[in-house]
Write a protein that binds this DNA or RNA. Structure first.
Lengths: 200, 200
DNA sequence: TTCAATAATGAACATCATGTCCTATAATGA
DNA sequence: TCATTATAGGACATGATGTTCATTATTGAA
């Protein structure tokens, strides 16, 4: 196929497929969707689908370009809106939380419980236990609010898995002690003290 | 089947299946593995597999109980080893980083790049851009070390996705402004100031 | 309006994974 | 030794995948 990209038929087909995908994600979650579902919902021929995308993932990926532009636009507005320089650090976050609430169903289907791998779900569970006990045993965070403790545990687990993943994916050129030091500094004191992180 | 749990045949079969799974994870990653692969590798009959587990996920999940016990043991030792109370906060982390380095291949296959969903990978990419620009624009972290900036971006993205996920999964009983405030406080100043988090 | 280019259709097809069922065989523990 | 129970392995129905091809419909440009 020649992929004109301005041809109305192609635009129409692609739009139909994207709409079908989102509709199906809302109904049964991304993982459960089959290509058969998509082309049925979109009323598009099987061969037509493969003429545009190599598979389910390809279709999803191409859909993210829309989200990306939307978020960039929101960030631009957020940065321009407020005057206080310090208060607007990480200004993107509130906009995104609001956006998530607005499209809650879609977000839940994508990044909610079902959004993670089995592996990740299990790992998080195991780590949450560890962190919970660890924090209770060593840090004197005397919070009667159980929900607040829960958020903190989630935060620590998320940060840990994130740094672990980053470390592993980057050939682990720094030692366990170094990445551990970075992890502890960031989790305990946040990014405002990041100049204290060990060099290299 | 009666599931004796002490019958040598069952123990042997289960061990074979677990070994096959790990071996295959190392070779082609969890997602690419099929049940056919597993039973071929383990030399176990198809019906036998289904007599023990309901599917691939079930087998993997049951494997995590081993890892869990291992980590709990390590944490116990870590907590008992050192004397300084403040220094041992989050003491589990170093042990786990070391453990990850030791079993690097397995960890990479499970939590590395391939460990995440397509959705998550894309979302992280989009967010990393946002965070990078945001931090550069508002925080005056004058770090010449590009790698350090990269870690910080990863940390913020991970924390954000974690809290977003938690928030969505818990019916979002708190407002966007509240969860955003929690997010910013934790990311900017860490958990040691967590008593300053907004109530409720 | 005409027409060559090209996108969409839909059916057919080979391939592969899944989960279930069954009978015969082998291993086990008492 | 023997009743019990797990395993082997073949057969089967089901359903998803990705490809191919001849036909039809739509499109944009002349």
């Amino acid at each position: 196929m020649k992929k004109d990209l301005t041809d109305r038929r192609m635009l129409r087909t692609r739009a139909l497929l994207h709409e079908a995908l989102i509709s199906l994600i809302l109904k049964k979650g991304y993982d459960g969707i089959t290509i058969q579902d998509i082309i049925d919902k979109a009323n598009v021929g099987r061969s037509t689908f493969y003429a545009h995308y190599t598979g389910k993932e390809d279709l999803l990926r191409s859909g993210f370009t829309h989200l990306r532009e939307l978020l960039l636009e929101q960030q631009k507005q957020a940065l321009a809106k407020r005057g206080d320089p310090k208060a607007r650090s990480l200004g993107f976050s509130l906009a995104m939380f609001e956006h998530a609430l607005e499209h809650r169903e879609l977000y839940m289907a994508l990044v909610g419980q079902r959004g993670g791998t089995v592996v990740m779900q299990q790992l998080r569970k195991v780590l949450a236990e560890l962190v919970h006990d660890d924090i209770a045993a060593t840090l004197k965070i005397t919070t009667p609010d159980a929900k607040k403790r829960e958020v903190i545990v989630e935060f620590v687990v998320g940060a840990f898995i994130t740094l672990l993943t980053w470390w592993l994916d980057h050939k682990a050129k720094i030692s366990p002690a170094e990445i551990d030091s970075i992890f502890r500094e960031l989790v305990l004191h946040g990014i405002t003290r990041s100049q204290d992180l060990p060099q290299k």
